[in-house]
Simulated scan of single mutants.
Amino acid sequence: MIQMRHDELRSFQVGPVPAELRALTISDDREGMLEGTPHLHRRFRLMGIEKELAATPHLYVHDLGKLRADAEGRVEEWLPREAVHARLTSWWKPEDIAEFGHTELSVMWFQTATEDPFAHLATIVRPLDWASLARFVPFGD
């Protein structure tokens, strides 16, 4: 267990950019399901993810290509039950932006209840390119 003071944030390295975790939520990905199949569940989740991606251009969905292929290939294995969303921010900003502000990136993935979401997040974001995925947020927004 990592102990932190209440005023500290967890830091993560996203490529060469240091970022801080601002929010991490874990939800039951099958909440509200009464019946269905793994294939149907993947298709519904993929439709929801596609809708979320359209509304949130700075969202990175880990293994999205695999999720799409599994939905097309009729994989009959259930997705891990937990859907995890993390929001990271950094003081890094593109050189061509003169205004004050920060950049942020949201990350989503699926995992089992036994996995450590913080360790999983570190593994996911380490190879990412913050500059191409994050969006600039000016102060006051």
Rank of each mutant, 00 (worst) to 15 (best):
I124W: 03
R42E: 05
R81L: 09
E104N: 13
L21C: 03
A83Q: 15
Q13L: 12
L64M: 06
A134I: 12
S90Y: 12
I97S: 00
K51H: 13
A122S: 15
E99N: 02
R22E: 07
Q13Y: 07
V125M: 02
T103H: 04
I26G: 09
F118D: 04
Q3L: 14
G48H: 08
W91P: 09
P80A: 03
E31G: 00
P80D: 00
Q3Y: 11
S90N: 11
F139S: 00
Q111S: 08
E52R: 15
R30P: 01
M108V: 01
F44D: 12
V14N: 04
T114Q: 14
F100E: 06
A122F: 11
E115C: 06
E20Y: 13
R43M: 05
V137H: 06
E35R: 15
F136K: 00
H6T: 10
A23Q: 14
V125T: 12
K66C: 07
S106N: 11
K51S: 13
F139I: 14
P38E: 05
A23C: 09
K66S: 09
R30F: 06
R126C: 09
M1P: 07
Y60T: 02
D70E: 15
G65L: 01
E95I: 03
Q111M: 15
M1F: 12
P57S: 09
D129Q: 14
E52Q: 14
H39N: 04
R45Q: 10
I2W: 08
F118N: 09
W91E: 10
M4S: 14
E95Q: 06
I26P: 00
L121S: 08
Q3A: 10
W92F: 02
L40I: 08
H62R: 03
V61H: 04
L64G: 01
L59I: 07
L21S: 02
S132C: 07
G48N: 13
H58C: 05
E72H: 03
P138W: 03
G140D: 02
H102L: 06
L67S: 08
W91D: 13
G15F: 07
L128K: 03
A83R: 15
P138Y: 02
A54P: 09
F44G: 09
S90L: 12
T37S: 15
D70N: 05
L105Y: 01
A23M: 13
P80H: 04
S90D: 07
R87G: 02
T89L: 03
I49M: 13
K93C: 02
Q3F: 11
M47Y: 10
S90K: 13
R22Q: 08
I97N: 02
P57Q: 03
F136Y: 10
S90A: 15
R74I: 06
E20G: 08
T89R: 05
L133N: 11
L34A: 05
F12Q: 13
D70F: 00
P94K: 12
P38N: 08
